[in-house]
């Protein structure tokens, strides 16, 4: 039964990955990667119960933290362009990515 749930999560991850590859704007990609990361957390949690090693839940917790920080960091990098300035500049990453 856990196997069925992990399969469902894997299908979700596959669809999210397809959107991350296909997504017309860069924000679609980031949203898809965010969904992918959330599903990874759930997959690790389910895997902890399949294999009976509940200490894997610590890894899931840390992955949730890293996922959030990573999404925010990538978003900052995409909107501002670098990490050392503090204002949003005029270039438009959404349009540049659409072609």
């Amino acid at each position: 039964m856990f196997i069925v749930v992990s399969l469902a999560i894997l299908i979700t991850m596959g669809l999210a990955l397809a959107r991350a590859i296909a997504g017309p704007t860069v924000y679609d990609r980031i949203a898809a990667v965010n969904l992918f990361g959330t599903k990874t957390v759930l997959l690790i949690a389910v895997w902890a119960f399949i294999s009976g090693r509940t200490d894997l839940l610590d890894i899931a917790l840390v992955y949730a933290l890293i996922n959030f920080i990573g999404v925010i960091a990538v978003l900052k990098l995409v909107t501002v362009g670098d990490f050392h300035s503090s204002s949003v500049d005029e270039t438009d990453p959404a349009k540049a990515d659409t072609e």
Binding site: A8, I9, T12, L15, A16, R19, D28, A32, L35
Partner: peptide
């Protein structure tokens, strides 16, 4: 989860 993933398509 699968429905949400279908939704983003």
């Amino acid at each position: 989860g699968i429905i949400g993933a279908i939704g983003i398509h």
